[in-house]
Design a protein around this nucleic acid. Structure first.
Lengths: 217, 217
DNA sequence: GAGTGTGAAGGCCTTCACAGCT
DNA sequence: AGCTGTGAAGGCCTTCACACTC
């Protein structure tokens, strides 16, 4: 089993995999570093370094075997057995994620959803069972689930985080515009839509300021 | 007008503002660097450096004036007049964003939405008018809109990006799991839900690997 | 010739550490 | 005493450049 220390590399591996999967579906068998570099907005040298860390080797002038890379990336990114998450908050964003992640990965999936709205309790949404919010703690603990996805309003996010952390999750994917506090050992990934929107707005007004980013292609 | 070169700083300013706004609502008037550091997961020294770049000064032992900081951050992040975006793809994710960004900022808002589904054409959703997809190019151009938010399926994202770029936007907020190609001068911010999910999954399985991140508090 | 593998260099960001102020 | 302001140091990530291979 291979451990990767850097967050940035993990993110790029996910991107590489997406491109590799597509190439694989198109029946390609080999890939060059520059083919992976362009979609990930990095240099070919960066790609080669990342692949080096995976323990893979290419063939000069002939590139890398796609199948080898895919296997190596799976070894890093995918759980050996299967990994499950719960989603809390079945609003529009929650539904979008349920659509998005339904069936797409065998090894990583949303196992159940929870919502305070009683009308959503004990229904099945996009193939995913939805339970009453009150059952959150007991079910996460009983199922031994490791990931919590929070798509609840900002003022409830911390309370929900506390519950699922106490129930044993070690990873949180937080969509609420709040910075959560979580116990040591729990990884928190924030998807901050406000920040993303404001950032785009800033650079949309100052097109000169990011010239260097585009030149990396 | 002040220009900030670094993407990271822009992101942190957005976070600082959120905390500052809340403190302001609670009638606080001053803030210490460590109060802003904790929610943003950075050191107090980092906060002081960022504030320095804003051109603000604090008072030793007494912190920074919240009102001054808010004004300075507004000067950087907010457009002088007002800035408008269009949203393309009124699925669950699009609806979530319309809820999320409705009315919340006066200076930055979603001005119109577009969808291929004819039943959504010419309706008003969460206060935001929704038009048929065919009118996208003409309306973006006529209204001189600078930002496009893409919440369409992956296989349509590039085509939509091409249309809105040709119509004159200079910033794209892309939620489709594809890396877009856009003309020079157009800033693309990708919100990659797959990557975020896989990243959380990785660190949820390897709690030791991110110890250094938590220690920054 | 064209692409890989990698030590070395470079650059950016963050943190340290301490002087200065109240 | 406690917090700000900031030069200097440190660390991480990325890029360069070129030997090497097919």
């Amino acid at each position: 089993m291979l451990y990767i220390s850097s967050e940035k590399i993990i993110e790029r591996l996910s991107l590489y995999r997406r491109v590799l999967s597509q190439l694989h579906d198109e029946s390609a068998t080999v890939v060059f570093s520059h083919q992976l570099a362009a979609p990930a907005d990095v240099t070919p040298a960066q790609v080669r370094r990342d692949i080096m860390q995976l323990g893979c080797s290419g063939i000069p002038h002939a590139g890398y075997k796609i199948a080898h890379l895919l296997t190596a990336i799976e070894d890093v990114l995918d759980a050996p057995e299967s990994q499950r998450a719960v989603l809390v908050g079945v609003g529009h964003l929650g539904l979008a994620l349920l659509n998005y992640f339904s069936e797409r990965w065998r090894k990583l999936r949303i196992h159940a959803a929870f919502d305070v709205d009683p009308s959503k309790g004990n229904t099945i949404i996009r193939g995913c069972p939805c339970y009453p919010f009150e059952e959150l703690y007991a079910r996460v603990r009983a199922w031994n689930i490791g990931i919590g996805i929070l798509t609840v309003p900002a003022d409830q996010a911390q309370a929900v985080a506390d519950i699922v952390c106490k129930a044993g999750v070690t990873g949180l994917l937080n969509f609420a515009p709040v910075r959560l506090t979580a116990p040591d050992g729990v990884y928190v990934e924030n998807v901050d839509l406000t920040t993303s929107f404001e950032k785009v707005a800033y650079y949309a007004r100052h097109p000169a300021e990011f010239k260097h980013i585009k030149e990396s292609q």
